[in-house]
Structures are given as structure tokens and as C-alpha cells.
Design a protein around this nucleic acid. Structure first.
Lengths: 170, 170
DNA sequence: TACGGCTTCTTGAAAGTTGAACAAAGCCTC
DNA sequence: GAGGCTTTGTTCAACTTTCAAGAAGCCGTA
């Protein structure tokens, strides 16, 4: 069904050759980088990249703790995924949960001292990996360009707001 | 301990504030986009993004078939992962396997007519999604910049060549 | 030919992710 | 305060990915 996203019978606007090349380069680079960082962290910190990101977020929060939903939102993952992730990090002893005092539905996840140590131990290696793969290879101008491009892309993909596609309803 | 990856006592070079912002923007945009496309394809084509990519590759190969290893290499995934993926696509009827005539260890995966139809049906929606999320939001200059940046990043992450880190050994 | 070493692909188990369904608590209105 | 709607976090089952191990065929060398 060609009808899906362009309300009528409009024919699809394919990518130009240049655009295709750029899109392939994007796919290629982003998957290579994600694989690389995932392995680096699995090896050096014993967890996948996204779990590491959760610890980082917690480490920066006041009192090193956060509501589950808030953490999920910041990390751009579903609550379901976060539940599993925190359960695993709890098993590893790096995070624990506590009841939220102000909302009895809620849970706070907090970083343990042990978790903090893991973070401190693996952060330098991780930063080095990021730097080596990205920032050391780009000119300052390119870093700026990358930031702006990513900002624009994200803008069009605002998370989860179900009316994002329907601005005329606001 | 700061000692990990820099052989000696060199202290880690943290990211500057600007770099951190760019890195966050990168993470943010790339994960949003990947989630978005994954859902789009799961909904409209009944498979995750990467499986769709496999069908695309096959559709462009001569006689719509490819050796497993070659396909895995092009798609930047492990042979193991490809085995599972092709098994699943075979169950869906979109791909089949055949023995490779020239190497009895080998297998060719080929796209069925049914698989080709799925592709034809879902390609326009997918292209539209990519265009809407990326190319429609960037100026032509930015598209060029993105391509170059991604090319540079990928260059430093060459897949799988175990000696890539040891150029002096060549 | 026999041997060791390499490549090709698959398998199974463990780990992680997804989406739907659910219980519990909050919130709003009558 | 009863009813209905929303939010919060978890759970289950189905699916995907990873890693280690292994069967089978290739290839070079003696």
C-alpha cells in the first residue's frame, strides 16, 4: 500500500544518489560506533552502553537518585526496559531501589557506592574511546556542524508526544 | 583508577562542555531516529530495521542472492546474528537458503518473490520516514557535512580487522 | 594421502528488548 | 466519597542479540 504516509496518491520522493551515499555513511558510522562502544563497555565495565548511561545519569542526580519514570525519560527508553535494566543492575549491586516517599506508586533508583566506584573506574576508558572515535577525528568546525545537525534531527523526532504529528490539533 | 587505557599515569582528557553537548545531542538524535525507524518498519513491514536492510541488500544483488558471509559483512553484523535473522526471514517466507554450488560449506540467501513484494510495498513509507526525519530538515550544505563527518568517523572504526589498531605491524 | 590450520555457517543458552496487560495509587469531578 | 480516568512501575511471552562451541568443508604442505 503506497498510501500510508502521504495521504493521497503522491509518488514517493526517492533519495538522490548523494543522499543515498550520505544515508549509507550515516548507517555505517553509527552502527560501527555503537558496536564499538558497547563492546568497550562490556569489556571494561561489565555492562552495555545503555546501562552505563543509566549509572551516569544517576551519578549526576541530586543524592544520586531518581524516579524511575524520570530516569526512563532522560535515557529515552521505555519504563519496561528500565525495569529490566534496573533489576539487572541491582543484581550486580550497582543500583538499588527504594519506595518514593512522596508518591506511593513510585520508586527511586539510586546509585550504590559500589556502582559509583565502577563508574569512576571505567569513565576514563570510555571517554577515551569516544574521543578517539569522534572528537579526535573531527575539526572544531565539524564538531559544531555535527552538534547542529543532530539538534535539528532530534527536533523532528520529539519523543513520545502522541500529538507531535498533529500540530493542527493544538 | 585513571590508569586503564593510557598505558601510564596520563590523566584522562575529559570532554569540554561543548563536546559534551555535542555528544549528548548525537546520542539523543541517533537513538530517537533508530527507535523511530524501527517502529515504523515493524508496523509497516513487520520486521525490525536491520532485517529490512537485509532484504534491501539482497534485492540489489545479482539474481537477488548472496553468500551469507558477504551479506553479513555488508550489513555489519556477525554471521551468527545473520543466521538467526535469515532463519526468521525464512519462516516469514521472504528469504530462502540454497547450497552454494562452488563451495560446499557455503549458503546463498535469496529473496523470494514474496519478499520482494514486501519490500516494494514498504519502501516508499520507509524512504518518506528517512526523508522527513533527516533530509527534509537539513540544508544541502549540512547534508554534505554530515556525509563527510560520518565518513571520517567510520574510517576510525574499521570493522573487524584485528590489526587495525596496529598499523606499524603491516 | 594425511595433516593442521583456516573459513563457513549453525546451534544453544544467556542476556537484553518489546509490547501488551495488569495492579496499585493518584487525581478530578460530581 | 464514588466513579472514572490517568500515571506508575512491574510482569509475561515473544522476539532479538550475543557469545562460545562445534560440525563440515577448504587449502597448503609434506
Amino acid at each position: 500500500m503506497d498510501t500510508a504516509p502521504n495521504g493521497g496518491d503522491e509518488r514517493p520522493r526517492w533519495l538522490s544518489d548523494d543522499e543515498q551515499r550520505v544515508w549509507r555513511a550515516y548507517r555505517h558510522a553509527t552502527t560501527l560506533l555503537e558496536d564499538h562502544l558497547d563492546r568497550q563497555l562490556q569489556r571494561d565495565a561489565g555492562m552495555p552502553h545503555i546501562y552505563y548511561g543509566l549509572l551516569v545519569q544517576l551519578s549526576q542526580a541530586p543524592r544520586r537518585r531518581m524516579r524511575m519514570t524520570e530516569l526512563a525519560k532522560d535515557a529515552k527508553i521505555t519504563r519496561s526496559r528500565l525495569s529490566h535494566a534496573v533489576a539487572r543492575l541491582e543484581r550486580s549491586g550497582w543500583v538499588r531501589r527504594e519506595d518514593c516517599p512522596s508518591d506511593r506508586r513510585g520508586q527511586n533508583a539510586y546509585l550504590t557506592d559500589e556502582g559509583y566506584e565502577v563508574l569512576k573506574r571505567s569513565a576514563p576508558g570510555h571517554v577515551a574511546a569516544v574521543r578517539q572515535a569522534v572528537f579526535d577525528r573531527l575539526s572544531p568546525e565539524q564538531v559544531g556542524q555535527l552538534g547542529e545537525i543532530m539538534r535539528l534531527m532530534a527536533e523532528g523526532l520529539q519523543p513520545s508526544d502522541p500529538d507531535a504529528d498533529l500540530p493542527w490539533l493544538r
